[in-house]
Simulated assay, not measured.
Amino acid sequence: MTDTVSFGYAEVAREDKTRMVGDVFERVAKRYDIMNDAMSGGLHRLWKDQFVRRVKPRAGEAILDMAGGTGDIAFRLARAGADVTVADINPAMLGVGMERARRKGLEGLLWAEENAERLSFGDRRFDAYTIAFGIRNVTDIPAALGEAHRVLRRGGRFFCLEFSTTTWPGFKQVYDSYSHHLVPRLGKAIAQDEESYRYLIESIRRFPDMPRFKAMIEEAGFVRASVEPILGGLVAIHSGWKI
């Protein structure tokens, strides 16, 4: 294990990354959902709908939604009657989610401040583990995957929605130009924070591609690992099962 890890395109001390990522999300929390709409043209809503359809939440089952702060995935899971625990390392993001739930009149969700690398939950607690657009911000991704495997019951399922690398010819170049040049400007105009969104885009580029991340899921002990590309792999749904 190296002493440094990526923070966007920079290399920082391993012990500093968690704090630095926390600072980013504390700054962007209040504008996070508005920026998601602006950056994706609203497409993130369709991706999340598709993601939850793949999870197939059922009434009464226990689901841990990790890095779920603002509630976007949890609200969708709860509609099926699942018992959802929303976990996030960042209290500012959780605060936004709890306020959104209050405004929507949603009750029954559990909210927990948790580090994905060191969950406080006992072994074999959940039927499903979901994480959407959060795994790339974890300092030690293998540790987080290992914790996901630990807290799942036998037969439990792991689902991850994350940006990846599109394989569509031509589209990759267009997206790279858009994301590197326009997204930070959107961050400055809407969230008054250009640098945080520069980091978020850079973190996508440093995240493992689809085959490499699939291998990491398998190395954590999951079987039947699979990946479903969206827009040629710009976004991908990764999954695996615990047996």
Rank of each mutant, 00 (worst) to 15 (best):
R54Q: 11
R58D: 07
F171I: 14
F7C: 06
P57L: 10
L152N: 03
F133W: 11
T139Y: 02
T167R: 11
W168S: 00
A92T: 06
Y199F: 15
H180K: 13
V227M: 11
A225F: 03
P229T: 09
G81L: 11
G69I: 01
K104N: 05
S179F: 10
F126C: 01
R154G: 14
I217L: 14
R58E: 14
E194Q: 13
D72W: 00
G68Y: 00
A191E: 09
I217M: 13
T18S: 14
D193S: 11
R125L: 00
R157H: 11
H44W: 10
W47N: 07
M35W: 04
Y129S: 01
V28P: 02
M20N: 08
F121V: 03
I204Q: 11
N90D: 10
M93G: 09
D83S: 10
F126L: 02
G105A: 07
L64W: 01
N115F: 04
E219Y: 05
G221K: 13
R79V: 10
L186D: 02
R76F: 04
G71H: 03
A112N: 01
G22Q: 08
L186R: 02
S164E: 09
S6C: 13
S179P: 02
G60D: 13
D23P: 02
R54M: 12
A62N: 08
F163A: 13
K172V: 03
V138N: 03
K188S: 10
R212L: 08
M93R: 00
G95R: 00
G146R: 06
G170C: 07
F163K: 04
A148N: 08
W168R: 06
P208V: 04
F171M: 15
G42Q: 11
L200Y: 08
R124A: 12
G122T: 06
M93N: 03
P208G: 03
R58H: 12
Y175P: 03
P57A: 08
L64S: 01
P91S: 13
N115P: 06
R224A: 15
F171V: 15
A225G: 13
D3G: 09
T85C: 02
V96H: 01
P91Q: 06
A143M: 13
A144I: 08
T166I: 05
D140L: 05
D123K: 11
M66D: 02
L77A: 03
R27T: 15
F163T: 08
A62S: 12
H180R: 14
I73Y: 00
H181F: 06
I204C: 13
I89F: 14
S164T: 12
R150T: 09
W47H: 02
R150A: 09
G221L: 10
A38G: 12
E114Q: 15
V235K: 01
T167K: 10
R45V: 15
E61D: 15
K104Q: 08
D123W: 09
I201V: 15
K214A: 09
E99C: 04
K242E: 06
R53A: 14
G187K: 03
G134C: 07
E113N: 06
D127K: 02
H149F: 15
G170E: 07
V55C: 07
G95P: 01
M210R: 14
